[in-house]
């Protein structure tokens, strides 16, 4: 469907190097990276707003690298509204249809249809200036979908919205994708990526460092950057000791972890997923080799389950079920045991 091959761009000091990725037809591809990583530039190259210095963009078999913007067959939604302030909502959604020379009766029908999908039917006569952020993004989506683009590009479409609107709009995006629309979505929010993406590409310093399904990227972060970036709570810096083939020691902040790794000894990071941490009220007698006595710092609902922060000399975040919180009576200040298996600790060499 969309193939981006070795795209390079130089914009002043910023450089995009050899960016390559592929999005399947009907897929939802999220390009994840911090601000300044170059993800918006990639999107603008695909959309034709920036000319690449090298590489190719292939959409549905056509090489569109040097195609005119208006002939590319892509839709683009930006973070902030780019609705035309001097036109009504109707005028905005109709704009690409009128540009394409559609007759007014047809335009009316199509705008109505789009307004229904994006649920902005009641806003058609309004001026975009008087709409909320969420409404503006819905209208922008309707407008971008109007010319039936082969590919929909979204540049941080949820960033300027509050939590509730975000979840509404996410549902809408899923729906649109579900109807077969291929989407490339750029964001710095890993949760957004996890919730929407079929595939994720992580971009760092102008280059794609890892691509894969959300599970692949989040559970096997390919680098310290990815691990830190995707927001895994438990990532610690320290030194790995011992020889390969044995249980290894990793000392971080005075705490000794025991883990498995075939990396040579040296400086690095360890990552522990919050869901791999087991909490108990008495000293556990399990196969887990890492057992620490600590004190509960906070108990907070997470997206799924409850996040319990435990101080063992450093803070560890554990994800447990609400049931466990209730049965163990986990409250701040309570003394608990934290245990994790050696195999649950992932070492990333620096």
């Amino acid at each position: 469907m969309l193939k981006v091959e070795n795209i390079s761009v130089r914009l002043g000091k910023f450089e995009l190097r050899d960016v390559s990725f592929e999005a399947d037809p009907g897929g939802y591809f999220v390009l994840l990276g911090m601000s300044g990583a170059g993800k918006s530039v990639v999107l603008q190259v695909v959309g034709g707003l920036i000319r690449p210095d090298g590489g190719r963009v292939i959409l549905g078999g056509r090489d569109i690298t040097h195609q005119k913007i208006q002939k590319r067959g892509v839709g683009l939604v930006f973070q902030d509204s780019t609705l035309f302030p001097h036109m009504s909502v109707y005028g905005n959604i109709a704009y690409p249809l009128v540009s394409a020379g559609m007759v007014s009766k047809e335009v009316l029908r199509r705008v109505g249809q789009l307004a229904e999908i994006t649920r902005v039917g009641h806003l058609l006569k309004r001026s975009p200036r008087n709409l909320s952020g969420g409404e503006q993004q819905r209208v922008a989506l309707a407008r971008a979908l109007a010319p039936e683009p082969e590919l929909l590009l979204l540049d941080e479409p949820l960033s300027s919205l509050d939590v509730q609107l975000r979840s509404d709009l996410r549902a809408l995006l899923r729906e649109i994708n579900g109807s077969g629309q291929t989407i490339i979505h750029v964001t710095h929010d890993y949760e957004e990526a996890a919730m929407l993406a079929g595939r994720i590409g992580v971009i760092e310093n102008g280059t794609v460092v890892q691509t894969g399904t959300p599970a692949e990227v989040f559970l096997n972060p390919g680098s310290e950057f990815v691990a830190r970036f995707v927001g895994i709570r438990n990532i610690f810096c320290g030194a790995l000791g011992g020889d390969t083939g044995t249980l290894r020691n990793f000392i971080a902040g005075g705490i000794r972890f025991t883990l498995l790794s075939d990396e040579p000894a040296g400086e690095g990071f360890v990552v522990v997923r919050a869901e791999d941490i087991v909490i108990s009220v008495s000293k556990p007698s399990t196969s887990a080799v890492n057992n620490f006595l600590g004190m509960v710092k906070s108990v907070q609902p997470a997206r799924i389950g409850t996040e319990v922060m435990v101080d063992i000399g450093m803070e560890l975040g554990a994800l447990v079920s609400e049931e466990s919180v209730a049965s163990l009576r986990l409250v701040p200040e309570k003394k608990v045991w934290v245990s994790l298996k050696a195999s649950a600790i992932k070492y990333i060499r620096r």
Binding site: G47, Q70, G75, L76, Y95, S99, A144
Partner: peptide, 26 residues
């Protein structure tokens, strides 16, 4: 805002149409 002109181009408007329907009125 230049991004309004760019948005219009992405929506399939010709540069002349962008000028007359977006830049000039604004």
């Amino acid at each position: 805002p230049e991004r309004l002109e760019k948005a219009a181009l992405v929506l399939g408007a010709s540069p002349a149409r962008v000028f007359f329907t977006v830049s000039l009125p604004l």
